[in-house]
């Protein structure tokens, strides 16, 4: 796949798009708090990926971290200010609340209601962070990337990824108030989507950090 992308095989890009457009779109949403902006970022990201195809290394795993890194840069360039993010986040939360009200009685939407609440909770949590922390957190925690992958995607040292992530986690922990915990118990056993983060966690204090230290020796 990497070789085909590097050499500019159009079919490879079609596959890349089918496989990762959704992930890039959702990642962009977490960074912009705005679904329509996320769509723009997603579209620009793939055009940018096409343009930068020659920079793909021949060896390596999935191209998803590469795409998410590009998306982060695109989103950052377009949505710099925290104030703007917070405004978008509260607008999205308000829109979600309004939808909930309208569709309150339709049984089949119960799952979607939960999703909306969870999206609002995510935005609330993310808007309490500074932009660099938000980027690291979304890559490492939401996308399950390892420190070294996130560092490469963001173009920052691994040490900086770790320090930003630990600051972000500290801030989030403070938000763990009763309301969110109650929401969690309402949601019950819906944990399937969270397993993806396990990979990050095992890497947390294992070889990822060690290999970074070896690299600087």
């Amino acid at each position: 796949m990497r070789t085909r992308v590097r050499t500019g095989d159009p079919n490879a890009f079609a596959e890349l798009f089918d496989d990762h457009a959704r992930a890039v779109y959702n990642h962009a949403f977490r960074l912009t708090a705005d679904w329509s902006a996320a769509e723009d970022v997603m579209s620009t990201t793939f055009m940018e990926a096409w343009r930068r195809r020659a920079s793909v290394e021949a060896e390596g795993g999935s191209l998803r971290p590469w795409l998410l890194g590009i998306a982060t840069n695109v989103a950052r360039a377009q949505y710099r200010s925290n104030r703007r993010y917070r405004n978008a986040a509260s607008a999205a939360a308000a829109a979600n609340a309004a939808d909930e009200h309208v569709e309150d009685h339709a049984e089949e939407t119960a799952g979607r209601l939960d999703d909306r609440r969870r999206i609002s909770a995510t935005l609330t949590a993310l808007s309490s962070l500074k932009r660099p922390e938000r980027e690291v957190l979304t890559l490492c925690l939401c996308e399950g990337m390892e420190y070294a992958e996130a560092a490469r995607a963001l173009g920052i040292p691994v040490g900086t990824v770790r320090s930003r992530l630990s600051r972000a986690r500290g801030k989030l922990r403070k938000l763990a108030d009763a309301e969110l915990l109650r929401k969690k118990s309402e949601l019950g056993g819906k944990k399937t989507e969270l397993t993806r983060t396990d990979r990050q966690i095992t890497g947390d204090r294992g070889y990822v950090i060690r290999s970074a230290q070896e690299g600087s020796r």
Binding site: Y25, D115, A121, A125, L141, L172, L181, E193
Partner: peptide
């Protein structure tokens, strides 16, 4: 738990 992973 603060960052529920919901995708659209």
């Amino acid at each position: 738990d603060l960052l529920p992973s919901v995708e659209r």
